[in-house]
Design a protein around this nucleic acid. Structure first.
Lengths: 186, 186
DNA sequence: TTGCATACTTACTTACAAGTAAGTAATTTT
DNA sequence: AAAATTACTTACTTGTAAGTAAGTATGCAA
């Protein structure tokens, strides 16, 4: 039954994105799944192992999803990025970067490395997407494309965080303005 | 000795901005200050009380600082905002919004309210600053000023978070591009 | 000089998190 | 059919976090 293992990772993913890494415990997983905490330790000896697994799944998912989009025009690709965040927003989640970066200093090294890997992958992809899209005239913006990617990802990340604090309208306000600025339709 | 109380708040502030609210304990304060944990409970019966005090101090400080700037032109005022974040960046800290918003759901209600108050104050001030600055021709941007404030604050907030994960250069890249976009000199 | 408030310390309690050692039931391999 | 592997459970241990009750030293106030 590989099922339990996947369910553990999936729930841990949700917990990290709702409560944060330091604020969830094995009990938050074992209770709803109706297993014992030792069952989690069987699949993931330490909490670090579990955290690493969560990020790895997300990164693999990101690589697979973006891979499926390579033939599409860049404005459609960017739309995918926004929809990814929109989905999280609707579920009341923040992204892994937004959840883990504030606690970065308290995280075990393997987790730090993984979150850096994930962020680097997302930024690199976004930078390339913006660059090519601008060349094709799909986007309009000034300056280096990687710098622009930093701004876009910053805004998406923070839109999820600020939505929690300032209410759900914030997400739409930020993303709409962002797309307008880039000249990327609606 | 009101001194101890202030030192507790100051250290708690630092701890929240480095490790996050859920990742620090009274021991992280009592050890360096060479007091007992019960001494902290004397001044702040619960951790919630301490957290609330930290945010209140920050909000008061923000109100006082911005109050001192009312006579200055808006580009100088905005520069102050950027310098506030730059100072945090140099000290390896994130802002309270960035630190507390991911854990928002796990925070006790009084803390949630306070962080919302603080965020609202910062966003309102930034929105007004941008609005007036644009009228005077000091800034150039499209759309609603409050929406623009959301974008600016998002970027500043996230620049501190991403700096941790992706290295310190990120902060400068984001803030430089942001100021260029607003047409607000260097 | 007695009394009371301030600012603590000493010495606990309760709860819960992370992790482990040893055992077991069910399946798979040989 | 026996042996090993998988996927757990039972029952712990250790550590630490938050909080509290009772006591104490110091200064000031009546």
């Amino acid at each position: 039954m590989q099922d339990t293992k996947e369910r553990i990772v999936s729930l841990a993913d949700q917990l990290i994105k709702t409560r944060g890494y330091n604020a969830f415990s094995y009990k938050d997983i074992s209770d709803p799944l109706e297993i014992k905490n030792a069952a989690i330790h069987y699949h993931f000896p330490t909490k670090t192992d579990l955290g690493v697994a969560v990020i790895e799944v997300e990164l693999q998912h990101f690589i697979a999803s973006t891979g499926r989009l390579v033939t599409q025009p860049e404005d459609k690709q960017l739309k995918f990025l926004f929809e990814t965040f929109s989905k999280k927003h609707k579920e009341g989640l923040v992204c892994l970067m937004g959840s883990l970066s504030p606690d970065y200093e308290t995280l075990p090294e393997p987790l730090q490395e993984k979150i850096t890997d994930l962020s680097a992958a997302i930024l690199k992809w976004t930078g390339a997407c913006l660059e090519k899209g601008r060349e094709k005239g799909l986007f309009r913006f000034e300056g280096d494309a990687y710098d622009r990617a930093l701004l876009v990802i910053s805004n998406l990340l923070a839109s999820l965080l600020l939505s929690r604090v300032m209410g759900n309208k914030v997400f739409g306000r930020i993303t709409n303005q962002l797309l307008r600025d880039l000249g990327a339709g609606k």
